[in-house]
Each structure stands twice: as structure tokens, then as C-alpha cells.
Computed example of a mutant assay.
Amino acid sequence: MARVLFLGGLGRSGTTLVERLLGELPGVCALGEVVHLWQRDLRDDERCGCGAKFSTCGFWRRVGALAFNGWHNVDVDRVHYLRAAVERTRHIPRLATAVEAPEEVHEYAEYYSRIYSAAHEVSGARIVVDSSKHSALAHVLRWSNDIDLRVVHVVRDARGVAYSWTKSVARPETDGAEHMTRYSPGRSALLWNAHNAAFGLLARRGVAVRRIRYEEFVSDPKMALAGIAEFAGVDLGASDLDFLYDGYADLKVGHSAAGNPMRFTVGRLTLRRDDAWVRSLPPRQRRLVGAVCAPMLRAYGYPLNTEVPSR
């Protein structure tokens, strides 16, 4: 049975940073956002985190051969159909309350379990990390008998997430021709509530879930990684966190299938808390997001009053 550490939360919450640092730990293999592999990699042949096209990356070629006897045997249209049928936020209540999941849920989960199992074998790692984030996918995966699922729920202040979604970020995989999705602050606030609540529901269904706050993770990454490693069942040695320095991490090449541009970073990665939203998110939008997300912000320990003092 493949042990999978699933990183969940709304996008722009810091999951890629958490994944990159986890990927440096012994016995851990970070796969990126596997949920996007079917389209971005199998169909569009975008670049792996190592820089090579997916079709030419040796790691992913071996995974595909072991999981499906070659990626050409994957019916991508079928995967897309199954995703639409079972892996949407609106399906979560049904997935969470069902006594038994429909056959399509098991079929969809099997595509992922095959990849996880093959990645385990190819990498030799004890644990694989999937940073797909999607709460509905986590609810699907919990039904698989072939996956030992553990979830790290990454939370960031909703106002910081909202500000990040307003920024225009080019996708390196497309040489700048495409940009990452953008949401209005109101839209991101609603999504923040929905996705984070879904992970709370997942925990109540018996899945092992550990919640971490992005702000605390960045402030003390060594302590945060040690806690996640213990949760995942990774035994750390005295030198296993030596890639972390004062204010930065030294990263090796990874094989992230999809994710934000940070997945291409090799070498020094600055570690600093991004609080630009405090002064850059317009007060009206800050108050809107704060009001919409107030109950959960309070539950997660975030202050509701973040007005910028006048100078």
C-alpha cells in the first residue's frame, strides 16, 4: 500500500513551498500537483520540475511504464470524464456521507494509486507527496484501499491568499505565453471558506489530517518540517535538515509534474514571510475578505483587525 502525503488547501497558500522542502527529506519523493498531470503533461507535454519535457523525463517515463505499461495506455478522455463526474467541490457532501462510494470514484482513485505506487518503486522513497491541493480529490482518495492517505492541510490568512490571486503570474512552462488563473478577492474568499471547511470534514471522516499555518511554517521551517515528518512517519537524522539555513533553503532538482513556478527553483530559495497584502490589498477588499471569512479566520487563530496604521 502506497503511503501518500497529500498537501491540501486553497491555491496560493504556500503548498508548493511546503512540498519543495518536504522533497528534500530522506525517503520522501515530491510529485507536484498530480491532478494536473493528465492534461498539462500527457496532453500538453509541459516541463517537469527537472526542466525536461514530461515525455523525455526519465523519472516520469519509468513511472508511466510501471503504472500503465506506458503513458500511451492512459485514456485521458476517460480520466477527464471521471474527474468531472466525481472530483468537484459540489460532490464533497456525497463523498463524505456515502456508506459506499460509486464505482466511478474507485476507478478514478485507481489512476492515482497506480502513479503513487509506481513512484514509490521508481524513487525508492517510503512516502510520496502529492500537492494537488484539491479538497474533492482528497475525499476521493480516502475511498481507495491501495492508498495510506495522510493529509497536511495548509492554511494561510485569507486576505493574503486573496491578494495573491489578484497578481498576474506567468507560467514558465509556456515560456510566458500563459498566466496562472486570477480570482477577485470576493471569489477567492468564498473558495477559501469552501476548501478549508472540506478538509475539516475530511478529518471527521477518519482521515489523518494535520493542519499547519503558512505563516508559522515560514517563520520556523525546521520545527514545522520536523512535525510534518513525524506525522508522516519519517525518521529524521541529525543532519537531515541541514539544507535549511538562516533565511533560505538549498534545493536539489525535483520532478514536480505541475505547480507554481517555484517548482523549477534549484539552489538557494529565500524563505521569508510574504505579508505584502497588509499594505497592498486595498482596505475595502481587505474588509470584504475579512468579513466573508471571519468565522474560520478566528477558528484558525488569525486576527480579524488588520487595518494598516497611518503614518
Rank of each mutant, 00 (worst) to 15 (best):
Arg279Leu: 06
Gln285Asp: 12
Val308Leu: 13
Thr270Leu: 10
Arg284Trp: 04
Pro295Asn: 10
Val234Asn: 04
Thr265Gln: 11
Tyr183Trp: 13
His179Trp: 11
Gly237Val: 03
Arg287Trp: 03
Arg205Ser: 12
Val207Gln: 04
Ala257Thr: 11
Pro185Asn: 09
Leu236Gly: 09
Ser256Val: 04
Phe199Ser: 07
Gly186Trp: 00
Arg211Met: 14
Thr265Arg: 14
Asp246Phe: 07
Gln285Leu: 14
Gly200Asn: 09
Pro185His: 03
Leu241Cys: 07
Leu236His: 03
Ile212Asp: 05
Arg182Cys: 15
Met296Asn: 10
Glu216Ala: 12
Val209Pro: 02
Arg286Gln: 05
Ala203Asn: 01
Ile228Ser: 05
Asp274Asn: 12
Asp242His: 07
Ala299Asp: 08
Val218Tyr: 00
Ala203Gly: 10
Gly247Trp: 08
Ser184Met: 07
Arg204Tyr: 03
Asp235Lys: 15
Asp246Gly: 05
Asp240Pro: 06
Val308Pro: 00
Glu216Arg: 13
Leu281Tyr: 03
Ala198Cys: 05
Phe243Arg: 01
Asp246Tyr: 07
Leu236Asp: 03
His195Thr: 12
Val266Asn: 02
Val308Trp: 15
Asp240Leu: 11
Ala208Ser: 12
Val207Ser: 06
Tyr214Asn: 11
Ala276Ser: 15
Ser239Tyr: 01
Arg286Ile: 01
Met262Gln: 11
Pro303Gln: 07
Met223Asn: 13
Leu271Ile: 02
Val209Leu: 06
Val218Leu: 03
